[in-house]
Nucleic acid binder design. Structure first.
Lengths: 189, 189
DNA sequence: CATGGCTATTCATATTCATGACTAGCATGA
DNA sequence: TCATGCTAGTCATGAATATGAATAGCCATG
């Protein structure tokens, strides 16, 4: 019952097609949730059945027709209800962390490679998020924007995403460095 | 196929019972994964069937008997294999983020309250993790420990958990402040 | 001396999430 | 012009995760 609300939240500011949603939830922009296309289409039909979103067909001639969805009043009420519920704490759930937990028992080289890869990925995402934030706030400073802008929700979640990816990058680099140095020290003995 | 490896990684350094595992995976110590008791017991039986862990019964008179598990050579090999696979990127998946994404459309007071609650929770966890790190490194400095300590895997994941919770706390405070100030500015008009 | 909480675990079921396979037309580049 | 990739979606199935409910004796607190 959480993907529901993520979809609703994503549709608040703009009408989107299922396909556009999948792009947002894919790897790029989804700073607050992540889901597969099939889940999204399924959720959209369910949401429409429950009257929380409405879709309207848009006929296109050069490309397949599509359906654009927007949140209804009932949908907004549902989001409001959801917001009032106490959120359960969020946990990191990460393959890479599992591997690092086992660092003292598995091959160091492989681990270092994985950490480097993840670090690169994080760096790339930092760039994307930075760009997004810039676009959202335009020529205003962050302070200015957060004080007087109209749609700060997406900006705030983006900020969290950015901090998270920075954390990822820094930690990966640190861990890789530590492992590399230990490897070196061990080799020399 | 991920909980498997999380369990294996958790059992690497010490023999644990299912119950102890549930404690570790509950809310406290699980910096790299999180799971329900039932999942863990189920996974342990599967792991034992597959020969990746072995359990030995410990008879207790004042409390119920228990089974302590440790990783077998096959289990270690499986972890090694897993480590070599490319890890998929990790995403934040958080109810609270969804709510903040919708910040411009839902009740601000509720949101601020939730952010405050989460911040407190994060602060508490920071304390716990700090203590854990301190215990692990003993009287050595972090640098010292990471260079020459024997079991640095758990330490490294703990570091990531700590940074993550700090990120949570800081972001919650920031977001709450922003929302509070906007609320004030709006009220005065 | 009753109440609730902790150890220690199991069974069954429900919900959610992920994977693979498929359609079909248009556009773009080699 | 052949192959690849993008838009726009659907169907079916499988794996992972979460939830609810039980058992049963011990220990501490009021």
């Amino acid at each position: 019952m959480a993907l529901r609300h993520a979809v609703l939240a994503a549709l608040l500011d703009e009408e989107l097609s299922g396909y556009q949603l999948t792009k947002a939830f894919g790897l790029g922009v989804a700073n607050f949730w992540h889901a597969q296309p099939q889940q999204l289409y399924a959720e959209l039909t369910r949401l429409e059945q429950d009257g929380l979103v409405t879709g309207r067909e848009v006929i296109q001639d050069t490309r397949p027709n599509k359906r654009l969805f927007r949140v209804t009043d009932a949908g907004l009420a549902e989001l409001e209800r959801f917001t009032a519920l106490t959120a359960k704490p969020s946990f990191i759930r990460d393959d890479l962390m599992v591997k690092v937990q086992a660092a003292d028992h598995v091959d160091t080289g492989t681990l270092i490679a994985q950490l480097a890869e993840r670090s690169t990925f994080a760096e790339a995402k930092i760039g994307v998020l930075d760009g997004l934030l810039r676009t959202m706030r335009g020529d205003r400073t962050e302070e200015e924007f957060l004080r007087h802008g109209e749609r700060i929700g997406p900006y705030l979640t983006c900020l969290r995403g950015l901090a998270f990816e920075r954390g990822n990058r820094d930690w990966c680099e640190r861990a890789a460095t530590v492992l590399r140095e230990r490897q070196g020290a061990h080799d020399r003995q």
